[in-house]
Design a protein around this nucleic acid. Structure first.
Lengths: 259, 259
DNA sequence: TATCATTTGTTCGTATGTATC
DNA sequence: CGATACATACGAACAAATGAT
């Protein structure tokens, strides 16, 4: 019966009313919202208007709707998985990463050859249509059940330096770091983080709920001269995972004259 | 006229057909899609079905729709702004950050007192309902026009150690770092990255288009003993900005006996 | 400035399909 | 099996933004 008298379209007024009811605590997390029929009666609007309002709240990620059951208030929920983006080098020249071997591989890694996309070219400082070796993995964290997609992209020049990589593009990154170090490289890394809405196939393979973005991570391995040697991409649902970085203060670099 | 014969609901078949037309290049980026009326004719479906399909593509972030004009293929677009998450300490004890002073403040910083939320408590290792000083800023990058929201949260214990902060919670972070260093702290930082769909007010203040997630950044400043002293939060539209980190390999820590 | 055609936005009505319990 | 709930699909009408006349 709550009379609706606000600016904007009717369905937005209804959406705002429900949103406030959720944020004020009238509808608690994980509890069932009134059914569409009840919302029609409560606000005195038609079914399309209610559905429009519900769709808006879905797109905001505020509620979850399940066919035949009803709408649930989505609980905020802390991330189930923290991906610490750190790299540790052991004294024997090998590398380890937090959670490095704790992943289960859902399926066999698939290897292939491809060419640089605009993004891969930007990170690897290559032009378009340059040859790459690729390897895709679908990983799952056994503790939380979180799925992530991992991709390794090896430029042709790197595979030339280490022929094993051309034969076995499915070599794990930590091992590749070791091989590159044996070749005399002192490695460093840069990571770039973005987010976007998933494509339909990403939604299904990562099993993402509605209104859940994917975190897109690109890690570039640089060699001694700073040139990029390797690109890794990681995709994960933003509802389950967070990325953690440790930062220390750099010293002010000596001012240099322009080149 | 393209006959539709695929699995799934009718509107999903239409959405899939349009999606493929976009990805195959039939509809180029920034070009106008056929109008709803044309799509109705092309696929032989009703207006609600077309609108449902268009809504799906909107939620995926594949198209932009403008009232009275039509639907446009969204161009992929590289991020206009790369936020380098680095901190540099100069010899005179002050701190600088990439892009540190290049921001314009859209409005005056607003300062307030508040209490820890669940998130703030997690990062600051405080219980619930602990007192905090806060300062919110709306910043804009003059080069790209990208807007970001910045929040500084100062725990009561930190404000006690540096009384100036209680009087002036709007002190800029780089300056706070300097003050904390003068107090004898050797600072370190951790950052945590997440993403989610924006709330309505975040959408308007950051001027976000449809289907655009926000990148959520939490930076915690730690003192000499590792205890958290300060929390900063940064919110930015994921369509315009990316975060960049530099990583170096840690040395294997000396193995310690359990405490 | 004013009007008009085009295009998307909103709202109603109605019927049927499908998942859950 | 039936009752309830959400999903899909059709039709119709009017509102509001846009761009051209």
């Amino acid at each position: 019966m709550s009379e609706i008298q606000r600016p904007g379209a009717l369905y937005q007024q209804v959406a705002a009313a429900i949103r406030e009811a959720i944020l004020s605590g009238e509808f608690e997390p994980d509890s069932l919202l009134p059914s569409e029929a009840q919302l029609m009666a409560r606000y005195g609007v038609s079914r399309p208007t209610v559905r429009n309002a519900v769709a808006a709240l879905r797109a905001e990620g505020l509620i979850d709707v399940r066919h035949g059951k009803g709408s649930f208030v989505r609980s905020a929920g802390q991330p189930a998985l923290t991906l610490e983006r750190r790299i540790t080098r052991t004294t024997d020249g090998t590398f380890t990463m937090p959670n490095g071997d704790a992943w289960d591989e859902v399926e066999e890694p698939s290897t292939y050859r491809t060419r640089t996309t605009k993004d891969a070219g930007r990170f690897l400082q290559l032009g378009e249509e340059e040859a790459l070796f690729g390897c895709d993995r679908l990983l799952i964290d056994p503790g939380s059940g979180t799925r992530v997609m991992h991709r390794t992209l090896i430029p042709f020049t790197t595979a030339e330096a280490i022929p094993l990589l051309a034969e076995e593009p499915s070599t794990r990154p930590a091992e590749i770091y070791g091989l590159l170090t044996q070749e005399g490289h002192k490695l460093s890394w840069t990571e770039s983080v973005r987010a976007r809405m998933p494509l339909p196939d990403e939604r299904t393979t990562l099993r993402l709920p509605d209104a859940t973005p994917v975190l897109l991570l690109a890690r570039v391995t640089h060699g001694t001269d700073g040139r990029p040697l390797l690109l890794e991409e990681l995709r994960s649902g933003a509802d389950r995972a967070e990325l953690a970085y440790r930062i220390t203060a750099d010293k002010q670099p000596t001012r240099r004259t322009r080149a």
